[in-house]
């Protein structure tokens, strides 16, 4: 494996990790603060991708489309919260699973009906279209860089908000004990709504920035949802810091694993065996990591208690 390839893969892993973090942040907070298991969180990611596609068609400008998409994703999240999720916070996990499963089925089918079953794509904006020369042999697309930077920026803003603002303090307290927060006289309903709306918007944002990189298709949120679950289990439910570290870890391991598993195996076993087992092992790596974390730290790397 050449150094250049390795570097590119690391960057790709980093970028995948950032996407995962954007989705995981909302999911882990909704879990931590409300104890609500939202399977439909991955669908918000799909919604974001389709929104940016639709707005680009309408306005012709990627930047305008991004802002319109974020606004729409936020409103969409708030509406879902108001009409459905709000009524499920006190229900059993089973009810929550069932209702959010219903929402997934509906939205996946709706996407298929409105946009068709074929995959769609969006071109990155002009000013982010090229690639830059990193070293003599290494060029990397500007757009992918931009997504890494956007992810880091969101992480920084979230970290600041949760560590230093009043609402962040409430969220941290809520992750430990929701009763305590409402005992403080805080409007817990509004806090939930804000957390939920922001979470939905972040997942939508992930979908938006993923749109020029990955194929837009119905059901695109389902698989990433499960990887996001792996991320928040590894990071510790309710922990933003944990989600960040775990997202990067999962992003890197998954990306590198898919490229190198076969190669590494073939140094140990026969090539044909490596070719057969390699891809399977690569797709299992993050689950193996999760299992290992569970054995040694059942509550995740950075459990939410105390630290956000």
């Amino acid at each position: 494996m050449s150094t250049t390839l390795f570097l590119i893969l690391c960057l790709n892993g980093l970028q995948y990790g950032m996407l995962l973090f954007l989705i995981a942040a909302g999911l882990t907070l909704v879990f931590g603060v409300m104890g609500f298991i939202n399977l439909a969180h991955g669908v918000q990611y799909m919604v974001g991708a389709y929104l940016v596609y639709a707005y680009v068609q309408l306005t012709g400008s990627f930047i305008v489309a991004v802002f319109l998409s974020l606004g729409t994703a936020l409103i969409f999240g708030l509406l879902l919260e108001f009409f459905v999720f709000r009524h499920l916070y006190t229900r059993s996990h089973l009810d929550q699973v069932l209702a959010t499963f219903g929402i997934i089925i509906f939205l996946n089918e709706l996407a298929k009906v409105v946009f068709g079953p074929a995959t769609l794509s969006v071109a990155p904006p002009e000013f982010l279209a090229g690639s830059i020369q990193l070293t003599e042999t290494l060029r990397y697309p500007v757009y992918r860089f931009a997504t890494i930077i956007a992810g880091l920026a969101v992480a920084a803003v979230l970290y600041f908000t949760i560590s230093y603002t009043r609402i962040g303090m409430l969220i941290r307290a809520g992750a430990t004990s929701a009763e305590m927060v409402s005992a403080l006289g805080v409007n817990i309903q509004r806090l939930f709504m804000i957390v939920f709306g922001v979470g939905a918007m972040l997942a939508g944002f992930a979908g938006v920035i993923a749109a020029p990189i990955f194929a837009i298709e119905p059901g695109m949120g389902d698989n990433i949802l499960i990887v996001t679950f792996v991320v928040i289990i590894i990071g510790g439910i309710g922990s933003i810091g944990g989600a960040f570290i775990a997202a990067l870890l999962v992003g890197l391991i998954d990306t590198l694993g898919r490229s190198f598993a076969t190669e590494i195996l073939s140094t140990l076993f026969s090539p044909s065996f490596a070719n057969q087992i390699g891809p399977a092992l690569a797709s299992m790596l993050i689950y193996i990591l999760m299992a290992a974390i569970l054995v040694f730290r059942p509550k995740g790397l950075l459990p939410a208690k105390g630290v956000a």
Partner: peptide, 28 residues
């Protein structure tokens, strides 16, 4: 492994193991 946890964790871990099984089957 999954029963080292319970509740929501159990739900998510069984989901993840299920997905792992799915990928294993697709690689056959």
């Amino acid at each position: 492994l999954a029963l080292r946890t319970s509740g929501v964790y159990f739900l998510m871990i069984t989901l993840a193991f299920g997905q792992m099984t799915y990928f294993t089957l697709t690689s056959l």
